[in-house]
């Protein structure tokens, strides 16, 4: 593989967890609930996947347990935020702090610095897609990824259909945009908001599982490294539209891929390249915001 296709393959590879978070998280965004717990949910998925992989080699079981745990966290979030009308920022922060704290406690209890499922060989998880793999150039970028990546790419399409062509998606958008219209027609906002949060949690489970189990077979605490927040930035910039938001996820993936591939040439300062995605996030948010308020003439604070 030459450098260019290497960079593009890595872009898809590194976009995966962000992309999954984005496509799951945008449902809650559309429903008017800011879910900042994406980060914590993703970390929970990472941890559980490898933790279960220490005891079994059953892929299905590993997937199910990660999904289950994240669903529970999602339900807790939904219960507190939707049913009990709590402050979403505080609940989200609590989850984001609680998950790594529990993980670190278990690591300490087990007396290990991180979890390693020795039987996992990431290469075995990567599989080619017939037909696509034979397309010159494109095949080498899109094929040969783990399952999570394909789920993520498929989700762009699924999220678009669900959001715009099904009752669930239409109602989710309505409760976020004009909750009074929803109530006046008997659409139960709480129900749809809860499901929207739950979809986000399940997608975070797959994202986390991809990050730890599918890629490395290793869990390190804090390995999500802010990807959940980058996903929020992508959702925000794409206004929650599946294709646009996914595009921003790819931009962040590309930044990460560049950081890794170019750092080979950078020598001792290569670590500096790791800040590229985060710098890019700030830059994109700033540009986006400046663009949004370019016509703002009010003197009010908000």
């Amino acid at each position: 593989m030459n450098l260019l296709s290497r960079i593009l393959y890595d872009m898809v590879y590194h976009t995966t967890p962000i992309l999954l978070c984005v496509l799951g998280g945008l449902f809650a965004y559309k429903a008017g609930v800011l879910n900042i717990a994406l980060e914590g949910m993703m970390l929970a998925g990472s941890f559980i996947a490898v933790f279960v992989a220490l005891h079994t080699q059953n892929t299905l079981l590993i997937y199910l347990s990660a999904l289950l745990v994240c669903a529970v966290i999602g339900l807790v979030f939904a219960y507190l935020a939707v049913k009990k009308k709590g402050n979403v920022i505080i609940i989200g922060l609590a989850i984001n702090m609680l998950v790594p704290a529990i993980a670190s406690f278990i690591l300490q209890y087990m007396g290990v610095p991180n979890l390693t499922a020795k039987w996992v060989n990431p290469v075995n998880f990567r599989f080619d897609i017939p037909l696509i793999k034979d397309i010159p150039f494109l095949g080498s970028i899109l094929s040969g990824h783990p399952l999570g990546t394909y789920i993520g790419l498929l989700m762009i399409f699924v999220a678009s259909v669900v959001l715009y062509k099904t009752r669930f998606g239409i109602y989710t958008r309505v409760i976020g945009e004009s909750p009074n219209a929803a109530t006046s027609l008997g659409i139960q906002a709480n129900k749809y908001a809860t499901w929207a949060i739950l979809i986000g949690a399940l997608c975070c489970a797959v994202a986390g599982l991809n990050l730890s189990y599918e890629r490395l077979g290793i869990f390190t605490n804090g390995m999500t490294a802010g990807r959940g927040f980058i996903a929020i930035a992508a959702i925000y910039c794409g206004k929650g539209k599946p294709v646009q938001s996914a595009m921003y996820a790819f931009i962040f993936g590309l930044a990460r891929s560049l950081a890794i591939n170019l750092s080979v040439f950078a020598g001792p300062i290569s670590a500096l390249f790791d800040i590229i995605p985060y710098l890019l996030m700030i830059a994109i948010l700033a540009i986006n915001s400046a663009y949004e308020i370019r016509n703002y003439r009010m003197r009010t604070y908000w």
Binding site: R173, V174, E177, S178, N180, A181, S184, L185
Partner: peptide
């Protein structure tokens, strides 16, 4: 106050 969804 109308119960409409503006973007729909």
């Amino acid at each position: 106050h109308f119960m409409l969804v503006p973007s729909f």
